[in-house]
């Protein structure tokens, strides 16, 4: 595109939006500051956006013992396979459903859509997973949510927005539906796949509840489930009135709030690092090679 002149409007826009954006990260910076501050400073409400009485105690506590790393690898494994399966199922479902001529299309759309409105609840789902023998396997974390309907519908609408001429060109070349999907449609889905893929990843990464109910062994907890167990229940600690030694020294510096801040920061960090990388795809690729509509 040729250069247009930068106007006052552009500057106001950049500054205005910048201010809004900054309010969005302030809580995060506050959190980071809290996680590096001493418990006394935090519970006195002294911590703003810079650490007070800098300490790494919260991080030492969260990371100590090696379980953190193990839980992290399990989470990575789950996010990888879970997102892959999500994407595969979403694409495979969204593409045929985007075809108006598909016989029974309305039925299938309704079939999927209904699951967004009503669910059976925790117990029947648990019993099913248990009966299928999926408890204590990675499947219990991946399969029940393998078909994210909301995102599939968003994807379906993206596909519907693609120009028909592209497909027609492929059909004329004698491609069948699978070939068209893989060779023609799939490459055009870049931004939308990056979008729904991000949502999938964030969901898999942040989910702690399924890890809690389907895993018997804390060693098998994904990261968020493990971090959840670290939310120190102060009353619980007091009841067991024999605490002593190193742990007490750490706990004294780490009130529930600083520990929570550290866990949250560590828990969010990996997925946040993926985000800018994925974002590149949001803004490019859709128009490449397409026929004008």
């Amino acid at each position: 595109m040729e250069k247009k002149k930068i106007t006052v409007f552009d500057i106001i826009l950049a500054v205005g939006l910048g201010v809004v954006c900054i309010t969005c990260i302030l809580p995060f910076i506050h959190l980071l500051a809290v996680s590096f501050s001493s418990s006394a400073a935090v519970s006195a409400g002294k911590v703003g956006f810079l650490p007070v009485e800098f300490t790494m105690a919260s991080y030492e506590y969260v990371i100590s013992g090696g379980r953190f790393l193990r839980a992290m690898t399990i989470s990575v494994e789950r996010v990888f396979w879970g997102t892959l399966l999500n994407l595969a199922l979403m694409v495979l479902t969204a593409y045929p459903l985007s075809k108006d001529e598909l016989l029974g299309r309305k039925f299938f759309v309704a079939f999927f859509f209904i699951t967004m409105l009503i669910g059976g609840g925790m117990i029947p789902t648990y019993l099913l997973v248990s009966k299928l023998g999926l408890k204590d396997t990675i499947w219990a974390l991946i399969l029940p949510g393998a078909m994210p309907v909301y995102n599939m519908i968003i994807l379906m609408n993206f596909v519907r927005g693609l120009p028909h001429e592209i497909e027609e060109a492929a059909w004329i070349d004698g491609a069948n539906a699978f070939q068209t999907l893989v060779l023609v449609i799939f490459p055009l889905l870049g931004p939308s796949l990056a979008t729904v893929g991000l949502f999938s990843m964030v969901n898999h990464w942040n989910d702690w509840f399924n890890g809690m109910i389907y895993m018997s062994e804390p060693l098998n907890y994904p990261l968020q489930t493990y971090l959840q167990t670290l939310l120190v229940d102060f009353e619980q600690l007091l009841q067991s009135s024999s605490s002593t030694g190193d742990i007490q020294a750490i706990l004294s510096k780490m009130s529930a709030r600083t520990g929570r801040a550290a866990q949250l920061f560590l828990g969010a960090l990996p997925i946040m690092m993926v985000y800018p990388f994925l974002q590149k795809y949001f803004t490019k690729g859709l128009t490449i090679g397409s026929v004008k509509g």
Partner: peptide, 25 residues
Amino acid sequence: IVLSIVMLLGIVGPFSLVKKPDTSS
């Protein structure tokens, strides 16, 4: 396509870090 899905599913189970404990379900 079927094969790649089956392979995907086949790989995940056995190589998963998640191990059933011996007293589980």
